[in-house]
Amino acid sequence: MDPAARTAAEWLRLWLDSRTGLRPRTRVGYAEHIDRYLTPYLGGVVLEELTPGLVRQAFEQIASCTTSSGERLSPTTVQRVRATLRAALNTAVSERLLPSNPARGLHLEPAVGARPVVWTDQAVAEWTHGGERPAVAVWTVAQTRAFLDFVSGHRLYALFHLMVMTGLRRGEAVGVRWEDIDLVKGTVRIARQLQTGRGGLVELAPKSAASRRMVALDHTTTGVLRRHQWHQQKEAQARGQEWNPRGFVFTGVRGGPLAPERLSRLFRKLNTESGLPPVRLHDLRHGVATLALAAGVELKVVQAMLGHASIVLTADTYASVLPEVAREAAERTAWLVLRDAGRVRRCAQARRGRRGVDPARAHPGPISAAPCLR
């Protein structure tokens, strides 16, 4: 077939098939962008006839698409679709099928990253009375404790406990093996993750160099993992199998590895049954960061714990804090500014009194016993 006669849809599929090194989730995302958005609005155009105008018209239509839940596509999703198209057309340019990339200069509505919203009493009340659910929401300390209490009898309680306390990604959590955990030193090594590929579950390296990390465990979490290990050994014996000391820490009922998507479905079910406001499984990770910062943990330490490549990402994502922490910060700021206000007021009153100025107009700060500075 003449390369110049290929349609955009044919090229996009050929391009995706040639990307053999993609991670499974990345491939699924590209395929969804191509099948759901790019092919319907650009697929019939001959590749060499693609122009910036046609691309712009297509994205005006894509931006008005709705999701399965009836919501309009977010600017972030539209940006990602454009990134897929640009990558595919960059390859076409490098192979001399196009003189330039017609998607390069496309301007879209900027994507605004969603920041975690804490499920305060006010947020819960607004959501209960028909308000919108936040895109990213985290539980308060009391809500987090209530969830752990609710799932305390579940066979995978240790998994949820570990995610709540360490902020592991779901693929990292289900990919942990017993050889990665040191129950004496209290550490867990993140050396792999599980993802669902075309042929089933696959083991992959962590998503970045920063994601390959050693996470410290508190004494309670270490004890929870010890009990989980004991129960796992009993389960293996009940199945007539020998427990594998190098196997996965968290498994299905029959001893096989857990798929990340299956874990997410289980979490949604437990979240609903608990009666707590809804959060995603990944939001437990956001909650860990928020609670750690609330506990006074330094931002750099939180970055290392979560495996972020940049501290800027950590700071930008977790700018929101728990209300009680914000109030404490406000009180500390007020104390810093006003702690000597009484002393300053008395000195100002004395000076104004000598000049005939009404001392009642001085700043009404707290009274201090400190002497005036001369």
Rank of each mutant, 00 (worst) to 15 (best):
D2T: 11
P3H: 05
A4W: 11
A5P: 09
L12I: 06
R13P: 11
T20L: 15
P24E: 07
T26I: 10
Y30S: 09
A31P: 09
R36H: 11
R36E: 13
L42T: 06
G44D: 13
E48R: 15
L73Q: 01
T77F: 02
V78G: 07
R82C: 13
T84A: 10
R86H: 07
A88K: 03
T91M: 13
V93S: 05
A103M: 03
L106N: 08
G113F: 04
V117A: 15
D121P: 12
E126S: 13
H129R: 15
A137M: 03
V141W: 13
L156Q: 04
L162C: 08
V164R: 10
R169H: 06
A173D: 10
G175E: 05
R177C: 15
E179Y: 07
T187N: 12
L194V: 13
T196R: 15
G197F: 05
V202N: 07
K207Q: 04
S208T: 14
A210H: 02
R213S: 03
M214G: 12
L225W: 01
R227F: 02
W230R: 05
W230I: 03
H231E: 14
G240M: 03
Q241W: 00
N244Y: 00
N244Q: 07
P245S: 01
E261P: 06
R262A: 11
L263S: 02
L266F: 01
N271L: 10
S274F: 01
G275Y: 02
D283W: 01
D283P: 01
G287Q: 02
V288L: 05
L299S: 04
K300W: 00
K300N: 06
K300I: 00
Q303C: 01
A304N: 02
M305P: 08
L306H: 01
L306G: 02
S310L: 06
L313P: 04
A319N: 11
V321H: 14
V321F: 12
L322N: 08
T333V: 14
A334S: 14
L336I: 08
L338R: 11
D340Y: 05
D340K: 10
G342A: 04
R345N: 12
R346W: 01
C347W: 00
A362F: 00
P364N: 00
A369V: 00
A369E: 09
C372Q: 01
C372S: 03
L373F: 05
